[in-house]
Simulated scan of single mutants.
Amino acid sequence: MTDPSAEPDAAGPVTRKTPPRHSGHRERLRERAARGGLDALPDYELLELLLFRSIPYKDTKPLAKDLLARFGSLEGIGAASHEAIDDLVARSLNIVRGKQSRATALDLQLIYDVARRVAREPASKRAVISSWSALVAYVRVALQHEPREQFRVLYLDKKNQLILDEIQNRGTVDHAPVYPREVIRRALELSSPNIIIVHNHPSGDPTPSPADVDMTRQVIAAGRSLNVTVHDHLVVGRDGVASFKQLGLM
């Protein structure tokens, strides 16, 4: 009986298909991860393991390294646009952009969003003001690698627990429009007496600008007459998180 895994070569005789060169590498990597734990793997190998599920028939190591080189880190990959990841996947694998590249981009962004929501849970389950480390971890995951400025407001209840994290505006690489009255109007709609303002600096430097200081004072003034308190304004950059309250700017 003919072996169904065999096929005729150019000369006619039946030969067996050769397994892909990377199949043994995949098993070795899985075994190493199982023995030593995922923490022992460098970022590119952790990314390889993830890509095994999206790309079952190609060597994923070059793609993992290309993704890290292009976007700088695992967080950077997760924060990148779907189109940018889709394009890089297609070029790295030498395929036409389509179902496989789109599915791979979605899988990568899915992992990032899961991580972002996990980081948000401690901040949303405890009083935000008293869990500073959880708050900082959350805003960094949410905004650290955003390529454009994004202005968000954390609306809190009377116990300073998170009601809603809402994106108010998205802007350019160095500006996102802010409307103080709209921020306070939304707080009244949500019955939120306390808010924290958050925005990012795509440049990486979280140092507040004079315009940031002026805008914050406008929001504070708009809220004061309506009993809405601005607890802090956080500026997020790749180099860290700056707090207006800690800097004495409010």
Rank of each mutant, 00 (worst) to 15 (best):
Y57T: 14
L154D: 01
A64F: 01
L106A: 15
K99T: 12
A10D: 09
K99C: 00
P42D: 04
Q161M: 11
R148V: 15
V235G: 03
P208E: 08
A10L: 14
M250C: 04
Y179T: 13
I220G: 02
G204R: 12
D66N: 10
G72M: 05
L93M: 10
R185F: 11
R120V: 06
R16C: 01
R181Q: 13
H25E: 06
L135M: 11
H145W: 15
S5D: 13
F52K: 09
A142L: 07
E7L: 09
Q100M: 12
K158S: 15
G37M: 06
P19F: 07
M215E: 12
L68A: 01
S124C: 02
A222S: 10
Q144R: 13
L234A: 07
L29Y: 07
T172G: 13
H231D: 05
L47I: 07
T15Q: 13
D87Y: 11
A142I: 02
R53F: 06
Q144S: 14
S81F: 09
I184G: 01
M1C: 10
L63Y: 05
E75M: 08
A6W: 14
V213K: 10
V241S: 03
I111T: 07
H82T: 10
A34G: 00
L49N: 03
H201G: 04
Q109N: 05
A79W: 02
K61L: 15
R26F: 11
E146Q: 15
S131K: 03
R102Q: 15
L234I: 03
A90Y: 06
L41M: 12
L49I: 08
V213W: 05
I196S: 03
R185C: 09
L63R: 05
S5W: 11
S133Q: 14
V118Q: 12
L108D: 00
V89Y: 05
E83G: 11
R116S: 13
I163F: 03
D212K: 07
